[in-house]
């Protein structure tokens, strides 16, 4: 066990835990987007940043990747942390306003407007689907392509991957857009799983046998 100070509270936590795990275990909430208990930590959305150390040398680190250390001083909701999270949420809202997850975050942090050029993207590149596909489904059907502003998630060459088992787990875990079933726009689908379900879910008498994680499902709404 190691002893750390979280928001002024001295607590003993298990060695090897991350700050995020320790804080949540004790009961301090930390928002996350790219984190999932069943997947390896990724540290990309930066929403989970916390302040460690003491001023003036304190700094922000992503709590999902940082292991607890003996004597570490952690603040999960300092002014600096909240300010950073609010800016990240503003950036998220500017890119992906339709996501319920992001809308909830914005309301929790009191972010009411965003000041950038509005974009409507389907994906925030949190990588949950990519890790889901490779770590839990052992498929590696989808992955990241390109870099910088050109980065995207998809299959090699944008054609249906022959290792995709159409399991739909990628859609299930996506935080940006719960309405990701793209049966009607197959070219926009990540893995084309929904478009390639045989028979397609729109033929509803077959529906009971299908694996569908969509809630609500666009196809179901249409019917």
């Amino acid at each position: 066990m190691v002893t750390v100070t979280i928001n002024g509270l001295d607590v003993s936590v298990e060695e090897g835990m991350t700050i995020l795990e320790a804080a949540r275990f004790i009961g301090f909430p930390i928002p996350t987007l790219c984190y999932h208990e069943g997947l390896s930590p990724y540290g990309a959305c930066r929403l989970c940043v916390v302040e460690i150390g003491e001023a003036p040398r304190s700094r922000l680190v992503s709590s999902c990747t940082y292991p607890v250390e003996e004597g570490l001083k952690i603040r999960t909701a300092s002014k600096r942390v909240v300010q950073a999270r609010r800016m990240i949420i503003e950036l998220l809202l500017a890119s992906c306003p339709q996501s319920k997850t992001i809308q909830d975050l914005a309301s929790a942090y009191g972010v009411r407007t965003q000041r950038f050029k509005q974009e409507y993207e389907d994906c925030i590149l949190c990588g949950l689907c990519v890790r889901m596909c490779s770590e839990q489904m052992m498929a590696k059907a989808i992955g990241f392509r390109g870099r910088g502003t050109e980065r995207s998630v998809g299959t090699p060459f944008d054609i249906q991957s022959d290792v995709c088992r159409l399991c739909g787990a990628c859609m299930h875990i996506c935080p940006a857009c719960q309405l990701r079933c793209t049966y009607n726009e197959p070219e926009k689908a990540i893995c084309n799983a929904c478009a390639n379900l045989r028979p397609p879910c729109l033929e509803k008498e077959q529906y009971d046998d299908m694996m569908c994680y969509m809630d609500p499902c666009v196809a179901c709404e249409i019917k």
Partner: peptide, 25 residues
């Protein structure tokens, strides 16, 4: 060429998605 990348994946035993990622990165 696409076929070359598929071949590299087959011969090296790495997944195509990783090789495609490197090729576009």
């Amino acid at each position: 060429p696409e076929e070359a990348l598929r071949m590299v994946a087959r011969k090296t035993g790495q997944s195509l998605v990783d090789i495609y990622g490197v090729a576009t990165f």
